[in-house]
Design a protein around this nucleic acid. Sequence first.
RNA 1: GUGGCUGUAGCUCAGCUGGUUAGAGCAUUGGUUUGUGGAGCCAAGGGUCGGGGGUUCGAAUCCCCUCAGCCACCCCA
Length: 409
Amino acid sequence: MTKLVRGFRDILAPQSNYFTEIESAARRAFALAGANEIRIPTVELKELFVKSTGDTTDIVQKEMYSFEDAGGRVLALRPEGTPGVVRAYIENNFAANSPVQKLFYIGNMFRAERPQAGRYREFEQIGFEYIGSAAPAADAETILILKDIVAAFGVKNYSVKINSLGCPECRPAYKQELINYLKKDFDALCDKCKERLERNPLRVLDCKICGPRVTASAPAQKLCAQCTEHFEEVKNLLDGRIAYDVDANLVRGLDYYTRTVFEFQAGASAQNAIAGGGRYDGLVKSMGGPQVPAVGFAMGVERAVAARGETQPARENKIFVISLDKTCNAKAFETMYNLRAEGVCADGGLFDKNLKTQLKAADKAGAAYALLLGPDELAKKIFTLRDFKTGSQKEINFENIYTEVKALI
RNA sequence: GUGGCUGUAGCUCAGCUGGUUAGAGCAUUGGUUUGUGGAGCCAAGGGUCGGGGGUUCGAAUCCCCUCAGCCACCCCA
């Protein structure tokens, strides 16, 4: 038979419920913060990602699903959400009307990496982009919204790292200084870092092989006065609201980040980054828009779900309708259907099974109550309501059924 | 993309150094003498042992290829 494509998967209950839970938590937090949802396409021109995410990144160099359509356009499945959002911001001319935008999205992303636990070729991201504000408060707010979602969803043991990468004023100088420093001991670098040196020397600090050895003596990040002030202000706003560590080696892998970057980590696996983000003050302009600052994050839903773990759902306020005889089926069915109209979760309908089987099914479905209708009940115009928690039963007259059930549930 | 480990019923696994019709527990289905679930009892169904090729009289068991999963690297969410 035809099977799943490598790296893709079916998400079944209860996992699928956890996805809904975190999405709901996110929507609540976004609504409280005044953010609007944006739905962007899954497919964009490949060049969008090359220009924004960056052609030096692995994501663009080797992880994109790209293809040519019948019209000869070179397209790609989105590997991340930010480029599409920024493209939409520019294309819809937000800058002219209401330049400050808090936008969030929930959607699946695609990267052709080698699959591993916590790393799939299709995965879901919940993302937030705060476009139009250069204020440190925007950085802090972005980080705190993310914290609220993670906390509301119930991830317990996570840590937060932040850093500042500087701006176009101070970063090139630092980059050059770092290159000069690393070149002095070029041969000691691993092969990867030799390649990285010119292209993106900051990544050497993040390297598992060279990083630990180099960082101790490497020149420290030198932020300009404005970047220093910005970073200090971000930290001030964060203090007391979230526990975090400043990690000078935190370097995000996307090209567009400036100033503040951050990462939320949880779980023991190597794929422990459940969310990450940062400021990207130059991206809108570099993509053809006006000079507009921005900051944002993206959260990996399956990683957040894995970090939180399974939850034991309480026995649902569900009523399971059971009929014991052909003569009772019509009334039982009608009652089941009408209960739903009354807003009660009514399951059941396995009327061709015997009582024991139907009760088993009710238990398995997690029902709180079973509503039994047999010839005896039909004759007396009553239902028998069984409470699964206590095992007790009581009789309810036909005419009172909806009010009584609604009172219970 | 690189390296390592793994792949037997829906799930978790057992099958010793190759030997007749491949097993268990859980799950499922059906019964359990007349209407009562949440580890009662009985029984049944379900696997071309990931797929393909090879070695052999004979392969789940050995070899090769392939696919998939996991772990590390890498990368990132």
